[in-house]
């Protein structure tokens, strides 16, 4: 049976997750790339009332392809974007909004890893480029914010999703990062590869 998390996700559920787990999510998520992070943090710091509650939804690092249809919007393709670019915002974002589930690709840095542990949140990896698979899991687009200011890829889209995934937990709320562990293995392999190249000639 697939493990499905429903939003809003309770902290206790997040704390049961570990690096390597595969999960799916059902409920609400919002998209946020570089500009959306900046804008949401700025609005919050100015005491503005936000039109959405980032703490109750999953956050998806994504710039989707969407299509205007009669009754709103249809998601055409929506894979993850590279999360590393959001490292400069993410620890603050988690602290201020309490978002518990990040969906992205490529992983994030140590500041985010520390914040995940403090806040009780996880970072999950969704298959890079799997835009059609993601779009198929979107039931509805209930809202979009800052579309005029930010344009389609950068706007904050709210997706109502069902069984969205697979998502691999790569950074958990216990201070573990798959990327850190893998880096040690890869560096060891790379030393062996260098030695072989030297031997061959």
């Amino acid at each position: 049976m697939d493990k499905v998390l429903t939003t809003p996700i309770d902290e206790s559920v997040i704390r049961t997750l570990h690096v390597g787990d595969t999960i799916y999510v059902t409920g609400c998520m919002f998209t946020a790339r570089d500009d959306a992070h900046h804008l949401l943090l700025h609005a919050e710091s100015q005491g503005e009332k936000l039109p959405l509650e980032p703490g109750k939804m999953a956050m998806f690092h994504c710039g989707p392809v969407v299509e205007k249809v009669a009754d709103g919007w249809r998601v055409v393709s929506a894979g993850p974007t590279t999360s590393a670019r959001m490292e400069m915002f993410e620890a603050d974002f988690l602290e201020r909004f309490g978002t518990r589930l990040i969906i992205g690709k490529g992983g994030m840095g140590t500041r985010t890893l520390d914040a995940l542990q403090r806040v009780g949140a996880v970072y999950t990896h969704f298959t890079g480029g799997a835009g059609a698979l993601a779009a198929r899991a979107v039931r509805r687009v209930p809202a979009v914010y800052w579309l005029e200011e930010l344009g389609i890829p950068e706007a904050v889209w709210v997706f109502d999703v069902e069984h969205f995934g697979p998502l691999t937990v790569t950074m958990d709320a216990h201070g573990k990062s798959l990327y850190d562990e893998l880096e040690l293995t890869v560096n060891k392999n790379l030393e062996a590869i260098h030695a072989r190249i030297e031997e061959e000639e």
């Binding site: 994504c62 392809v65 393709s77 799997a130 198929r136």
Partner: peptide, 24 residues
């Protein structure tokens, strides 16, 4: 898990005639 998701995605894109990746 990842390759199955990629292959499933490739199939979904072909069947639905939608871009396989949002970055076209």
């Amino acid at each position: 898990v990842q390759l199955d998701a990629i292959l499933e995605n490739v199939k979904a894109a072909r069947e639905g005639s939608v871009p396989m990746c949002q970055d076209t």
